[in-house]
Design a protein around this nucleic acid. Structure first.
Lengths: 345, 345
DNA sequence: CTGTTAGCGCGTTCAA
DNA sequence: TTGAACGCGCTAACAG
C-alpha cells in the first residue's frame, strides 16, 4: 500500500484525538464547526484519502462488487461491463472484473477469489460450459447477493437481467419471412445455455405462425468454446446447407461470433448476400455497416442490461433485511435492417 | 463483506490459538506436522479463505493493481486488458479497471480512487485529453509504481510499453507505395498524443525515402473525443480529398475507429476500394476480413503490450529497493494484407 | 463537544 | 511447539 496520510497523522499534527478527526471528516454533528473546518482544511491540503481496506475491514463491507464474464475481449461483454461500471460508479461501488474464458473451472476460481476478496456481491454471466450452480447457490445462501445477467439459468433463484431472446429470434425470423424468404436456416451454439434454446424457440414460433415447416436439417449447432473449432464447424455447416437439394434462402445466426464469421465465410466461399442467401444475426458490433454487405442485426441492449443488473445487485446489497422477491427482467431487442436481408424479388 | 470462516473460528473449533492457526496455514516451521495437518484439513473442509482486506491492511499491500484505460468498449483496450489480466493473474494480483472516457478530469478521479483503494501500483494508458502528468508524477515520487502503456508520454519518467507506431506507419506507407500508390493521404487524430505524431512521422519518413512529396493538404486531423464529431469530421475530410484536383489514390488511417468508420463512409459515398481509393488502417479488429472489401490493417500486439506492461509494473512493485533503470519498450506491428490495398494496375 | 477504548481479521514479535 | 499481545487504519459505543 501507499504511504498516504492517515487519521493518526492528522491527529498528531493537529493535537487532537483520532476519533475527533474521524468524526469531523464524516461530518458528525457532535463536532464544533471550528474544529471541523480545521480538520477538513488540513485533510484537503495533505490529500487525505480514507484507506479503503481499513474501512472495509471495519465495516464488514468493501463497497466493491465482483463481475464474472466470459472474456474482456468479447465486444458484447465489454458493452455490458460499461453499463455495470456506469451504475456502480454512480453508487460509488468499485468493480472487480474476472474472466471465465468459458471454463467452468476457471469461473469457480474467479468466484472464490472474489469471495475471498471481500466483495459485497457478485454479478455473473455464466460460462457456456457451466452446468453446476451449487457453489454460487451456497454463497447466496450464506448471504452474498448474486445477480445473473445476459446468460440466465433456471438452476439458481435470484434476480436475473437479460435480453428477450425469444422475441429477438421471433422478430428476426418474421423480418425474413416478410421480406420474401421462405426457407430459413438457423445456426446456433452447441451450448446448454438458455439463450440458445430461447432463440431456437422464437425461430420455431415464427415459422409456425407463418405456416412454414420446421426442418431439422436447417438447424445446425456449432462448437462455441474454441474459435478455430467454431470456424471449422461454421464452414462445414454452410457447405452442408448449400449442398442440400432444397437449400435455405436465408440464415438466422444466434451469436456475435457466429454472425460475423458466417458473413465472412459466405463471402470467402463466393456466395452473394442476399441474392444467394440472406443473413440476419444477433450481434452488437458497431461495424455492421462496414461489412460486405452491411449486415442486418438483432441488437441487444447490452449497456442497459449491465446497468440494470448492477442496480439490482446494489439494491440487494443495501437492504439485505427484507426477503427479496426475485425477478427476471428481459429487455427488448431491436432489428437493425441493412442490406443483407434486402427484400427478395 | 461475507460471513466466511476466519482464523478465530478455526481456533475456537480446534481449541487452539489464533496465531497457531495462522502459522499452520502459512506453513511455518515452528508448528508440528500433526497440528498443521489438523488445521489444514479443517480449513479445507470449511473453505477457509484469508480475508484480503485484513491481510492487505496488515501487510501494507493489497496485491492489487489499478488499470486506467479510455474505455472498456474500445476493442483495442479490451485486448490489452486481457493481456494485463493474464500477467496479473499469473502472479496472483487482482486488477481493478477504471475508465477515463478520454476525460482528464475523470482520469484524475480514477487515479485517486485507485490510490485510496490501496492498489500496489498503477497501469495507465492516458486519456487523449491529458496534458498534465504532475499528479501521477507526485504519486510515483511518493513511492507508488506507475507504468504507462500504449499511449506513452514524455511528461513522466517510468517504464513505458507500447507499439512501434513510427515503424507501423512507415511500413504501411511503404506497402502502399510498393503496390503502386503514389498520392497517399493520412487521416489522423487531433490529439497531442505521441502515438499520433509518431505515426505521422513514420508516414513522412516513407514518403521521403521514396521521393514522394509531402503534401500538407493530404493530412487531416479529426476530433477524437466524440463519436458523432469524429464521423462528421471524417466525412468532411473524405469529401475534401475527393474534391481535390490532384486527389489521393490511397489513405492511411491512424486509429481503430478512424479506420473502420472511414471504410464505412467510403462505401456510403459510393467509392470503390481500392479502385477509386485504397485504404490501410491501424486497427486490431478481427472482423477486417468481413469488411467490404477486406481491410488491410496495421496490427498492434495489444495482448503482449498489456502483458509486458503488467509484468514490468509487478517487478517494480516487488523490488522497490533498487533505483530502477526505466525503459521504454516498443513492440513490433505487422501489416496484414487484404483486398483494400490490392496492387494498382 | 472531545477523548478513550474496543474490535474488524490478520501476521508477527516475544514469552511460556 | 504453542499462545498472548500488539498494531495495521478505521468507526462506534461510551465516558468525560
Amino acid at each position: 500500500m501507499n504511504n498516504s496520510v492517515t487519521l493518526k497523522d492528522i491527529a498528531k499534527a493537529l493535537n487532537l484525538s483520532i476519533s475527533t478527526i474521524s468524526k469531523s471528516l464524516n461530518d458528525s454533528h457532535e463536532i464544533s464547526t471550528d474544529t471541523k473546518k480545521l480538520v477538513l482544511d488540513y485533510a484537503q491540503k495533505h490529500h487525505y484519502l480514507p484507506n479503503r481496506m481499513a474501512k472495509g475491514l471495519k465495516e464488514g463491507k468493501s463497497r466493491s462488487i465482483g463481475v464474472v464474464v466470459c472474456s474482456l475481449e468479447n465486444n458484447f461483454a465489454a458493452q455490458m461491463l460499461d453499463g455495470i461500471d456506469s451504475a456502480s460508479t454512480d453508487k460509488s461501488y468499485q468493480i472487480i472484473i474476472m474472466q471465465s474464458k468459458e471454463s467452468q473451472k476457471q469461473e469457480r476460481a474467479c468466484i472464490e477469489l472474489l469471495y475471498a476478496g471481500g466483495v459485497d456481491g457478485i454479478l455473473i454471466s455464466p460460462a457456456c460450459e457451466t452446468v453446476d450452480f451449487s457453489y454460487l447457490q451456497s454463497l447466496q445462501d450464506s448471504g452474498l447477493p448474486v445477480v445473473l445477467f445476459d446468460r440466465l439459468s433456471d438452476e439458481i433463484e435470484t434476480h436475473k437481467v437479460g435480453a428477450d431472446n425469444f422475441k429477438g429470434a421471433y422478430d428476426a425470423t418474421v423480418h425474413l419471412i416478410k421480406n420474401g424468404y421462405k426457407s430459413i436456416a438457423h445456426l446456433n451454439t452447441n451450448t446448454i445455455l438458455n439463450i440458445a434454446t430461447e432463440r431456437l424457440n422464437g425461430y420455431k414460433q415464427a415459422l409456425e405462425e407463418y405456416k412454414l415447416p420446421y426442418r431439422a436439417d436447417f438447424l445446425r449447432s456449432c462448437d462455441y468454446t474454441d474459435t478455430k473449432k467454431l470456424n471449422a464447424d461454421l464452414e462445414e455447416s454452410i457447405k452442408y446447407y448449400m449442398s442440400l437439394k432444397k437449400r435455405p434462402d436465408a440464415i438466422l445466426t444466434s451469436t456475435d461470433q457466429i454472425s460475423t464469421r458466417c458473413l465472412a465465410l459466405l463471402n470467402k466461399l463466393g456466395y452473394k448476400i442476399p441474392e444467394d442467401i440472406a443473413l440476419i444475426g444477433f450481434t452488437n458490433t458497431d461495424l455492421a455497416d462496414a461489412f460486405n454487405p452491411p449486415l442486418t442485426t438483432v441488437h441487444q441492449p447490452a449497456f442497459e442490461i449491465g446497468q440494470l443488473a448492477a442496480s439490482k445487485l446494489i439494491s440487494l446489497i443495501e437492504k439485505k433485511s427484507q426477503e427479496p422477491e426475485y425477478e427476471t427482467i428481459l429487455l427488448d431487442t431491436t432489428i437493425q435492417v441493412r442490406a443483407s436481408t434486402r427484400a427478395r424479388k
